[in-house]
């Protein structure tokens, strides 16, 4: 049983770290966002392994369902060249690589040097020992309305402020808005331009904009 859990943990860890490396190195931003979704799924599986089922479901709902989709929308709204030839990292990326690697080493080296055996609790002696009590969503909800009530309310206020702020920041006045053509209008425009092109060659095709 323990071996199976260890193998599953190894696979999940490989998925999380591999997908995260792909997120920061992928040349195409859309591919990076899809790898980010894979990494989020790996983290949710790790929560399942850590017996935090509610957090795993929340992870899928909020990260994969909302944040990843929001990121994909932002990529598509700020459409520009994201092809293979475009430089995706800053000029001095090796400095940040140095910072990240040295931070990881600073965390890891003292841990490994002061290591005195893995700190595992002993297995229960008999097969029918009392099972370990775990706190679930009921305790979580009780914590929200008793101990962490103030933090809960502040989180609600924060969400409202962020919602209003996002609307205010991304708002665009109607007079400055560019009109986006529907597919049918664009097709009709192209047909019209092609007809005029054949009628009198040398005419420039101009795009129609509204409210400029």
């Amino acid at each position: 049983m323990a071996t199976v859990v260890q193998i599953v943990f190894g696979l999940i860890a490989a998925l999380i770290v591999g997908a995260a490396v792909m997120v920061v190195t992928a040349r195409n931003v859309i591919h990076a966002a899809l790898w980010l979704i894979a990494s989020f799924f790996g983290v949710a599986a790790l929560y399942m392994l850590l017996e935090a089922e509610f957090i795993a479901v929340v992870q899928i709902l909020v990260y994969v369902g909302a944040i990843a989709i929001l990121i994909l929308f932002a990529i598509m709204l700020t459409r520009q060249v994201t092809g293979e030839g475009v430089r995706q990292l800053t000029e001095r990326w090796w400095v940040s690589l140095l910072v990240a690697v040295s931070l990881f080493a600073a965390v890891l080296v003292p841990t490994l040097l002061n290591h005195k055996g893995w700190n595992l609790p002993a297995l229960p002696a008999t097969a029918n020992a009392t099972p370990e009590l775990l706190s679930g969503p009921a305790e979580l909800g009780r914590g929200f309305v008793y101990e962490f009530l103030l933090q809960f309310q502040v989180a609600g206020v924060l969400l409202t402020v962020a919602l209003i702020g996002a609307i205010v920041i991304a708002f665009e006045e109607r007079s400055r808005r560019r009109r986006v053509l529907t597919l049918a209008e664009e097709h009709a425009l192209n047909q019209d331009a092609a007809r005029r092109q054949t009628a009198e060659p040398g005419l420039k095709i101009t795009a129609v904009t509204d409210g400029e």
């Binding site: 049983m1 323990a2 071996t3 859990v5 260890q6 943990f9 860890a13 999380i16 770290v17 995260a20 490396v21 997120v23 920061v24 990494s39 790790l46 392994l49 850590l50 017996e51 430089r87 995706q88 990292l89 800053t90 990326w93 400095v95 940040s96 690589l97 910072v99 990240a100 690697v101 931070l103 990881f104 965390v107 890891l108 841990t111 290591h115 893995w118 700190n119 595992l120 609790p121 297995l123």
Partner: peptide, 29 residues
């Protein structure tokens, strides 16, 4: 679960993920 995987292994995994994310946040254009 707690008998099979030491806490340190999970913490090292989280540290690796944090450092990868730090590299991405600092070096992406």
């Amino acid at each position: 679960m707690t008998q099979a995987i030491p806490l340190e292994a999970v913490l090292v995994l989280a540290a690796a993920l944090f450092c990868i994310g730090l590299f991405g946040a600092l070096s992406r254009r």
